[in-house]
Structure formats: C-alpha cells, structure tokens
Write a protein that binds this DNA or RNA. Structure first.
Lengths: 228, 228
DNA sequence: CGATCTGTTGATCTCGCTCAACGTAAGTGG
DNA sequence: CCACTTACGTTGAGCGAGATCAACAGATCG
C-alpha cells in the first residue's frame, strides 16, 4: 500500500479536479485557502443520511461509494466516486440533510468547501459556475441512463454493459473488478447471487473468461453489447 | 380551454422560470432578446433522439414528457416538464445529440436559447449560473430518488407514492391523473396492465377510491405510505 | 487459527410481464 | 348523428426472470 508521502491534499484537489480547470492562478490560490481536507480509512463513512449537508466534497485520492437506503433496508448504489469526482450538490442549494451515504472503499483523501464559501466563489468566478453546470449536466445524463437501463433491460445486459464500461474505463481487456460483487449487485439493482450466476453464465457462453476471483477478460465485446 | 391571448411567450419564459429569478432588470431584458419561442400541438415532438442538442429549452406553458428509448424498444419516462421547467442540460456542455425524446402532452409553448448564447450569459451573469447549479442539483437528487425507488420497492409501493405525490402536488385529495396510464406505467417502470391491476387492488383495500376513469380520491394516505 | 465476511450453488417461490380477448372511450368522415 | 376506426383500459391465464432461503466454500483478518 503506497504511503501518502506529503500533505498536499488541498493543492491536489485544486489541481486534479475537473471543476477547477481553466481557472486563473489567483483563483486557484483562493480556492486552496477555502479548502479543508480529511482522511478516511477504508470502510469509514464520509457522511451518512441525516447528516447536515453543508459542504461540497471533492475526492482527492481514493475511492468511495455513494448509496441510498430504501425504506425496506435495501441499498441502492448511486455511484462510485473516483479521484477528481465530487459530491454534495444537495448541499449547494438549500439547508438540507444528506439522504444518502458515502463510504470509503480504500484509504481516501477528501477536500471540503462549505456551501457558503462555494456559493461565494461561484459568484466571483463565473468559469467555476460554468464548469459546475457542465459537470452536473453530465451527472444528470448518467443518472438518466442508469434509470433507463435498470428498468428496461435484463440483469444479464446490465452486467455485460458494466463489464464493458469497466474494461473501457481501465483501458484493458483483462481487468480486476474495482468493486465487491455485493456492491456491483446493488449498483445494478440486483442481488449477489444473481451476479454470481450471470458471470458464470457469460463465461460458459464464451463471452468472458474468469481469470481469478475478481479478474476477468473480455473475449467477445460485440456479443456482450448485443445482449438484450 | 383558455386561448393564448397574446404572444408574450419570451417574456413569459423570463418571468416564469426559476432559473431567471433574482436577475436584474437589465439582465432579464438581455435574456428576452436571446430567446426564440415555438409552439407545439399536443403530440408533437419538441426533439427526438439523434437531433443535435444545441439549445436549452424552457417550457413557458403546457406540459411535455421526456423519455428515453431502450435498445429493445421500451420507453422509459424520465420526467414531465411543467410550466417553468427546462431541459437540454446535455446541450450545455458539449456538441452532442439528444439521447431522449420530448413530446408535448397538450398545446405547449417553448422558449429556446442556443448553447452559445446561454454559456455567454452564464459567464456574464453569475447569479444565473448559480441558479442553474441549484436547479441541476435538485434534478440530480430527484433522479437519484427515482433510481432508488425503481430498483428497491415494489410496483404497488411506487404507484402509491406516485398517487401521493400527485395528490400533494395538486393539493387535493380528489384529483385527476395528469397522465395516461400508459405513461404512468413507463414512468414507474412497469406496464399498463399492472397499473390497472394495482389501482383496482388499492381500491379494494380501501386506500383509494376510483371516482371516474382517471379521477381518484386518497382515502388512507398513511397506509399508502407504508406499502413496502 | 477460529471467526467473520464474501462468494457460490441449489431448490423453491413469486411478482409482474406477456399474450390474448374484450370493453370503452374518442376521434373521423359520411 | 351514427357507423367506423383507432387508441386506451381492463381482465384472465400462464410463464419466466430473478428474488429468497439455505447450506456450504473460500477469503480475509485479527
């Protein structure tokens, strides 16, 4: 496990994160002064439902899952935060509480900006606000996609897509699943058992190859794409 | 049916629409000059998948449904646009095509602003950008909710929630469903047959009362809320 | 090394989808 | 205004994808 060599987390945020792209040097320095940073160990919660949502979180390093809990106790994964992603848009528009949970999947560095500071920053830095609108626009599109897929296509199809996307994201045909199957299951709106079965089934059909427990190889991307 | 008396659509947009709230008089006048307006008859499409998405649409008057079409031909309703709502955030961040459809459910007036003009406007008017961020934040929260509900709770529960929300939105316990059951079905990720059955079932259980074909009365909101 | 968590496999059940037939409204043109 | 067409809605019967329950097998970890 690589040790975090330096405590440059604030600068990391500012540099790494897409919403701060294209800002002037001076603006970036201002941002850096407003940011506070936190470290979370794997398994710790960045926030839980009911917490006051009064700041924007930016993931400087690591990985975290964001999920909601339904009334019946079932989890629904909403997204995986990767380095450079942010969350807490709920924080931006009103005094409200989080309705979701965020849990670190590995050791993770997070930067925070308070709602107040961030709103002020947007007023003073239109580029930032525009970047923010763009980022949220993408987020909306991604969520619409997720909603549509979950309700219109089969688990097998959703899993196939997930494998393809993961593979594409890592730019490898042989890749390690970044999530536990339990989490993949709630992400795809299904159960671990079903994931297990479908992976076996896809392997039997020769579309993927199981290398190790959570390492897979895409053998036939075209057929995976065609699953209804 | 009220006749649209005047062609003040551009001003209507600017006045009605939440994202233009809090703007100065001069800013509002600028906005009004950039807006073009269109009228659509019930059933006409505001845009379809594949169209170039190069402008923001604001619904000045009427109602429209936005939906995606899955590979297998199934519709998934994403949302209903009401007076004051906007769509086309995809248009805001890149040259891209629409991946969804928008169809007028009644006679509808729509205002458009081109991506270029709108981006420029946001640069010059930070308040607008901040409003936009807030509106998109709300949208994200709503979509996360929809995704979670669709995957974690039963059709009966989703339908019950839909009835409660609709009733609450209209502020009446006796209310007319604003959508055809076909559309409610795709909104809730199910089929018309199932909607029909579940409505009958809820009525039999005494939680709602069927007044006419698409008029209903909430009899027991508490029990409706409790359905898992 | 036990203990706890995650994954696999099998057996069973059930919700809601599909297909089909029919009823009801709503528009269209004579 | 009524016959005709075309959409929408309802009801029934049957089926199937996937959830659930349960038992076991690896992993992971203190």
């Amino acid at each position: 496990m690589a040790k975090l060599a330096h405590d440059h987390t604030a600068e990391d945020c500012v540099e790494l994160v897409t919403i701060f792209q294209n800002l002037s040097e001076t603006d970036l320095e201002t941002v850096a002064t407003l940011v506070t940073d936190h470290h979370y160990k794997s398994g710790e919660y960045l926030f839980t439902a009911g917490d006051a949502a009064d700041s924007l979180l930016i993931l400087a390093h690591g990985q975290a899952k964001v999920f909601q809990m339904a009334a019946n106790g079932k989890e629904q994964m909403l997204r995986i935060l990767q380095t450079g992603d942010f969350d807490g848009e709920a924080a931006l528009f009103a005094n409200s509480d989080h309705n979701s949970f965020a849990q670190a999947l590995m050791d993770t560095d997070v930067c925070q900006i308070s709602r107040q500071d961030f709103q002020k920053l947007m007023q003073e830095t239109p580029e930032l606000a525009v970047n923010m609108v763009n980022a949220l626009g993408r987020r909306v599109a991604q969520l619409e996609q997720q909603t549509t897929e979950v309700t219109t296509s089969s688990v097998e199809s959703r899993l196939a897509n997930y494998l393809l996307e993961t593979s594409a994201g890592l730019d490898k045909t042989v890749f390690t699943l970044p999530l536990k199957k339990k989490d993949i299951a709630t992400y795809l709106g299904t159960t671990p058992e079903t994931i297990s079965r479908k992976l076996t089934s896809l392997a039997k059909q020769g579309m993927i190859q199981k290398i190790s427990n959570n390492e897979f190889k895409i053998l036939n991307a075209d057929r995976l794409m065609m699953i209804d």
